[in-house]
Design a binder for these strands. Structure first.
Length: 604
RNA sequence: GGGCUCGUGGUGCAGCCUGGUUAGCACACUGGACUGUCAAUCCAGAGGUCGCGGGUUCAAGUCCCGUCGAGCCCGCCA
């Protein structure tokens, strides 16, 4: 018999009754009846009830076992009496009659209870991550993550992609985030950067003629965390293809995304390919965001002209100042009580807006505080513009374009939820296309890239030479699911001449481009295929599939929001000799001090 | 860097608004009882710098100020 186990804790069934068996695992729970003792033994695969009676030589041992002790039990598989069958357990028809028990590893009382569904503080969960990972929800999420990645990998290979590895120690890349830096021992004063994404390497692999690249790629960005953004590192399904148009990239990725979501959430509705394509400008106008949640059926319409010259002084004045009026049809909301509208108005004020105008439609007319400013022709145009009919309400936001879009977008989300119109158990994908190539920095007034500077401008060199840069679109696209930005991607600029020009418009000299992106630029001078790709975030995909709202629920060993690993104690100081070796001298900020994070006491 | 919320035995919460006996409940822990439970049950016990510092007060877990920590958000993240 094997030293540790003949079966796993999730394996034995009624058909195994009468067999000898040996199981190893953790003591999940005990039920002590004095002369009869039940132990639920747990491993990765499940739970098996083990039973021992007072006559046994091992009874005292088992009775004294603490929860989470690791043991090996041997005995006979026995059938449970019909009344004692536990239908909640896969192994519920049997139990192990324990003859022998060996303690493999004792356990102190754990700081978080593995067998409990109780909430524990995030700090404790992170510090004792190995215990939290034993618990059912997190354990299952991590297994799900593995299966999702395996499925993605299988689908990518089946679609003709080749998997690569690219360097972790590299130089700074063109993404806009802060780099993690690694000092060089051999080159004093110089630093490696951890890749924010393998962007340049995958493009170089295209130049090298590999045609279709993918990687489950670690990406490192030194930016602050959010519930859906792990500080430090995250994973992307990074892919790149040669000799492709934007539509080719979409056609490659759509079946993979659809397939993975449909595979792991078979009960949910998943957008079939082709996913809707929504130009960036249209997304802002209709949804007030570049990452619309299409489970919400509400759309924003423009009502600027309807209010221009109307008697409502607040809007009319704003329109004269260049503001837009956005209208949001709320189907069936006319029946809502006054408090509903007051509550939304208060919500808008909390969002920093003056308020939220509205009318309700009934019997061919309109009611509400500003209804009197809309005469019959204007009302008819409003009904036409929004599709609103009797029984509906229409909400209004008036502000400069960006602010109006933003508030209308938030109101769309809020109203969709309040009215219960948001689809559940569905994954609604779309592509957001035609992102602007450039934008004007609000503070400096300077023109800069609005996204990846390596994207191909639509219209190519001619557009760069002849058009107002702010009107030029890029072959740049995002994939969005349920309001979550899963990835961005682009058809790349593979032409050095267009690249120099594109960077020139953003104020970067030829020398700057060569100094920073010389490796890739040089490669493009030796025959580069047109290419493009995308990089959906793995962690967010798993989050969506698992139905959780915090990214740490799908990462085995995440850092906290302050980018600390509480279990491993990272980041940590290093001995002076290590710093000397790296030619580093630490200059702490003024007034910095050591504080004991547990007690809050200064330790100066 | 900023905003909001939170911080009470190992853990989850109550107590705070309205200051006043030994800070209460549940889970875990320790001991005892119990031969069919499966969140076993019952009895008993131990366990608390109320994050930290200062202030107001006869009296502070409770009120005030500061500070530290955590989460969420803004900034940031193409």
């Amino acid at each position: 018999m094997h030293a540790y186990r003949t079966h796993t804790c999730g394996e034995l069934r009624a058909g195994d009754v009468g067999m000898p068996a040996r199981l190893s695992g953790w003591v999940h729970r005990k039920r002590d009846h004095g002369n009869l003792l039940f132990v639920d033994l747990r491993d990765n695969y499940g739970l098996t009830q083990c039973v021992i009676a007072a006559g046994s030589a091992h009874f005292k041992t088992v009775e004294s076992l603490r929860l989470e002790t690791v043991v090996t039990v041997s005995g006979q598989v026995v059938a449970r009496a019909p009344s004692a069958i536990n239908p909640k357990l896969a192994t519920g028809e049997i139990e192990i009659a324990v003859d022998e028990i060996t303690v493999l590893s004792t356990a102190e009382p754990p700081p978080l209870q593995v067998n409990s569904e109780a909430d524990f503080p995030e700090e404790t969960r992170l510090r004792y991550r190995f215990l939290d990972l034993r618990r059912e929800p997190l354990h299952q999420h991590i297994l799900l993550r593995s299966r999702v990645i395996a499925s993605i990998r299988r689908r990518m290979i089946a679609a003709g992609f080749t998997e690569f590895q690219t360097p972790i120690l590299t130089s700074s890349s063109p993404e806009g985030a802060r780099d993690y830096l690694v000092p060089s021992r051999l080159h004093p004063g110089k630093f490696y950067a951890l890749p924010q994404a393998p962007q340049q390497f995958k493009q170089l692999l295209m130049v090298a003629g590999f045609d279709r690249y993918f990687q489950i790629a670690p990406c490192f960005r030194d930016e602050d965390g959010r519930a859906d953004r792990s500080p430090g590192e995250f994973y992307q399904l990074d892919l790149e293809m040669s000799f492709v148009t934007q539509e080719d990239v979409f056609a490659a990725l759509e079946p993979i995304m659809h397939g993975v979501f449909a595979e792991f959430r078979p009960e949910a509705a998943v957008t079939p390919a082709p996913f809707p394509r929504i130009p960036y400008d249209e997304a802002l106008a209709k949804y007030g965001t570049d990452k619309p949640d299409l489970r919400n059926p509400l759309v924003i319409d423009d009502a600027t002209e309807i209010f221009r010259g109307a008697g409502f002084a607040v809007f009319a004045a704003a329109i004269e100042q260049g503001a837009l009026v956005r209208a949001l049809r709320a189907p069936g909301a006319a029946a809502q009580p006054r408090s509903f509208f007051d509550k939304l108005n208060q919500w808008a004020r909390d969002e920093g807006a003056p308020g939220l105008g509205y009318v309700t439609l009934a019997e061919g007319g309109a009611r509400g505080p500003i209804a009197k400013f809309l005469d019959a022709p204007r009302l008819a145009r409003l009904r036409q513009a929004t599709g609103a009919t009797d029984g509906d309400a229409v909400f209004f936001v008036a502000d400069k374009r960006a602010a109006a879009d933003k508030l209308a977008g938030k109101a769309r989300v809020k109203l969709g939820e309040e009215l219960g119109r948001v689809e559940t158990n569905a994954f609604r994908f779309c592509w957001i296309t035609d992102f602007p190539m450039y934008e004007r920095d609000e503070e400096t007034g300077k023109i800069d890239f609005s996204h990846n500077p390596f994207s191909m401008p639509q219209g190519g060199l001619e557009a760069l030479e002849t058009r107002d840069p702010l009107t030029i679109k890029a072959y740049q696209y995002d994939i969005v699911c349920n309001g979550v930005e899963l990835s961005s991607g682009a058809i790349r600029n593979h032409r050095p001449d267009i690249m120099y020009k594109a960077f020139g418009i953003a104020g970067y000299s030829r020398e700057h481009v060569e100094a920073h992106f010389g490796g890739m630029l040089n490669a493009f001078k030796y025959g580069a295929p047109p290419h493009g790709g995308s990089a959906p975030g793995i962690d967010r995909i798993v989050m969506l599939i698992a139905g959780v709202s915090n990214i740490r629920e799908v990462i085995a060993f995440p850092m906290n929001q302050q980018a600390q690993d509480l279990m491993m104690g990272a980041p940590a100081p290093v001995p002076p000799e290590r710093l000397r070796e790296l030619h580093i001298r630490v200059v702490l900020p003024e007034g910095d001090r050591m504080v004991d994070s547990k007690t809050g006491n200064d330790r100066r």
